[in-house]
Amino acid sequence: MGVAASVSVRQIRRWEKESPPPLPHPGQQLVLETMFGIPLVEMGFEVPPHRVTAPEAPGDPGGVKAPGDPGGVKRRTFVADAGVLAAAALVPARPGPRVGAADIARLRVRLDGLYRTDHTAGSGPAMTQAHRIEGEITGALGTASYTSRIGRELQTMLAELHGHQAWYGYDGGRIDQGRTACVEALTAAQLVDDPLLQVSVLETLVLLAIKAGRTWEAASAVENAYRLAMRAGAGHTVYLVIALRDANVATHTGDLSGARRALSRAVSHQGRADADAEVPNWARFVGPFEVDYATADMYVRAGRPERAVPFLRAAARGIGGGLARNSASYRVRLADVLLAAGEVDEACAEVGGVLDTWGGISSPRLLGKMRDFQRAAGAIDSPAARECAARIHETV
């Protein structure tokens, strides 16, 4: 409405309880009469003559009339959503549409759906969906009218979206693009002052930094994630994710004692994760299978593939059915280690199981792993290995 008027809880209580109630100032009068469609005097206020609302103009289809007007009082349409009324006082008038809670709910459903798309179909289709959602969010932020609360929700979702895109950069081997998305996500998360959202971005940054050969950056990201989690009073599941990233850094740098300590913390947090009252969406993927996989990774790095095999088997068998991409990735990793340990038939059987349920998963990282196995199997003089390599070529 373009009216600079606000009302405190204390003032409303005085209006309700005192007799006569204190007179609203002119700006408040305009808002109240517009909302309720009746003049101030009919709300129980003592209004001086110069503040009594003038009669409506002939033919005016709505609004308030002065007391005693023979036409009676015609009520305006009551605006039930107070947030819509507040919007004009919170953001400048814009020519674009108004964004409200219903729009936020629809965007939230689509944003949360990115997890399902990525886990089942891969990062390729998820990236396409993410681009569409990003266009809608940035368009709303730039041109629409909304309350400050809605604006914060939009910015929070934009931070989450950039976090998704950072992961897609990692999964797709586009490390520079992933790091750029991390910067965007961290900036947006800092602007809305959401420490747990920053943790979610930092755990992806750890993986990207390791791939980029920037282990000092990965270690710094882990330290900052611990600090932010403490500030937010995070639960055990969040600390479990951070401990696993800590183990990733230590394993990559060859610090096997550091990796063991990080994995010990991860096991401790995993055992207490059921006590978490609430778990962020981005941390819900984690489970015992992630701990097993990280433990196997440590043994492979230590040159003990035979010790890694049982942990990889446990990870591949323990992962949930809704995580198709990760499940396939774990099984191919298990096949790699089995092949290195001389268990050719079992390795090819694992890859065969992945191919049976391949279903066109669009994940460049998984595709790269599969092709690496194809090359390794093709170099082995074994009927099972040759048949497996040929099937990978035909299927993938």
Rank of each mutant, 00 (worst) to 15 (best):
L202M: 10
E203W: 12
T204W: 06
V206A: 10
V206L: 07
L207P: 02
L207H: 14
L208R: 08
L208E: 15
A209F: 14
I210G: 06
A212K: 09
R214F: 11
T215W: 08
T215H: 11
A219P: 03
A219C: 04
A221H: 11
A221D: 15
E223D: 12
A225D: 10
A225Q: 10
L228T: 07
A229D: 05
V238N: 06
Y239T: 05
Y239P: 04
A243I: 09
A247F: 10
V249C: 10
V249L: 08
T251D: 09
T251G: 05
T253G: 05
D255V: 12
L256N: 03
G258A: 09
R261E: 13
A262E: 12
L263F: 09
L263G: 07
S268T: 14
H269S: 07
Q270S: 11
R272S: 13
A273C: 05
D274V: 14
A275D: 15
A275N: 08
D276V: 01
E278S: 11
R284G: 02
G287C: 06
P288T: 02
P288D: 08
V291M: 05
Y293H: 15
A294E: 11
T295Y: 04
M298A: 14
Y299C: 04
R301A: 13
R301Q: 08
A302M: 05
G303R: 03
E306N: 03
A308Y: 00
A308D: 04
L312V: 01
R313V: 03
A314C: 03
A315E: 01
A316F: 00
G318I: 10
I319S: 02
G320Y: 02
G320T: 06
G320N: 06
L323H: 04
Y330K: 02
Y330S: 06
R331Q: 10
R331F: 00
V332K: 02
V332S: 01
D336A: 09
D336P: 01
V337F: 01
V337N: 03
L339Y: 02
A341G: 01
A341K: 03
A341M: 02
